[in-house]
């Protein structure tokens, strides 16, 4: 049997490579200085979907909610083998917390309507919250299995997976449709396919297309056939304004501080035997070292 799959992917600032310039003087984050990347575990989610499609056939739709620049992760999804890509983008989505995000994503999924498996990354590295998956599942009223390290078996309308639990793992079985969140343990994401890169390198959203001026277009091969990335706004998916963006977010950021290091009393210890002897004796006298 073939499977219809939806993968949720997010473009995130590369928090693993935060450098000095990424933090502004006032301790806030200078997003502009951070490279934007495909959220790592979303690549694992996409890879699981591709593996299923390789084996059984089917269709993979990708949804990403974000600013226009997030079209990049959708192009990269096409380069890896996605069939349909959708950018869920609207100024009104700005400032969404995980609840408002999951609402918007769930509305987009409901518009696609027909699916067997929704795959998410376990968590996004910008917030490390791991909330959007389960919240989306609840809004869709489907079962969820989080922290999936391995899909053990997929047979007809039933799936068996291995998931991490505290100090071990469990293997669970459930019926489709289901939402899975996939961990970095699951697989090694495949590289771009050269053929697909050739085919999709000019894939754009309608608004990207209309931003090109005509003179420029005359000098390229880009035309309407490159408008492959769908662009949906809140009205397109029927999302209520009071439930999206800042308005639809119950949590508010009250305050942001940079991390301050507290300097205690500091003693420089000589890197010599007498230096170490003094230190160890002091710690022994205080019964810190036995």
């Amino acid at each position: 049997m073939e499977y219809k799959m939806i993968v949720l992917v997010k473009q995130v600032p590369d928090t693993k490579n935060i450098t000095g310039q990424a933090m502004k003087e006032d301790g806030t984050v200078n997003r502009a200085a951070l490279p934007a990347i495909f959220n790592p575990e979303d690549l694992n989610a996409l890879e699981e979907a591709l593996k299923i499609k390789d084996k059984f056939g089917g269709k993979i739709s990708i949804i990403s909610m974000g600013p226009p620049a997030a079209a990049q992760v959708l192009r990269e999804s096409l380069f890896r083998g996605a069939d349909e890509v959708i950018l869920l983008s609207d100024r009104k989505f700005a400032g969404a917390d995980t609840l408002a995000t999951s609402y918007a994503l769930a509305m987009a999924i409901k518009k696609i309507k027909d699916y067997d498996i929704v795959l998410c990354g376990r968590q996004a590295i910008d917030g490390d919250t791991a909330q959007v998956g389960p919240q989306t599942a609840e809004k869709l009223n489907v079962n969820q299995i989080t922290c999936v390290d391995k899909i053990v078996e997929l047979k007809n309308k039933e799936i068996k997976v291995e998931r991490s639990i505290e100090g071990g793992y469990e293997i669970v079985k459930t019926k489709l449709p289901v939402l899975l969140t996939i961990t970095g343990e699951a697989n090694f994401p495949r590289p771009f396919s050269a053929k697909k890169v050739l085919k999709y390198k000019y894939a754009v959203t309608p608004s990207e297309m209309s931003s090109y001026d005509e003179e420029y277009l005359k000098t390229t091969e880009i035309d309407q056939s490159n408008v492959i990335i769908k662009l949906w706004d809140h009205s397109e998916v029927g999302a209520k304004e009071e439930q999206i963006g800042l308005a639809g977010s119950p949590t508010k950021v009250k305050q942001i501080e940079s991390v301050v290091l507290e300097a205690g009393e500091f003693k420089n210890i000589d890197n010599t035997k007498p230096g170490l002897e003094e230190l160890i004796k002091e710690l022994m006298n205080e019964h810190i070292l036995g």
Partner: peptide, 23 residues
């Protein structure tokens, strides 16, 4: 914030339409 807590709490917040802060 165990694997169980992180599976359960977001599902609950979504149903109750309230906020949740992780970790």
């Amino acid at each position: 914030a165990t694997t169980t807590g992180r599976d359960l709490a977001p599902r609950i917040t979504s149903e109750l339409k309230t906020g949740l802060t992780a970790d």
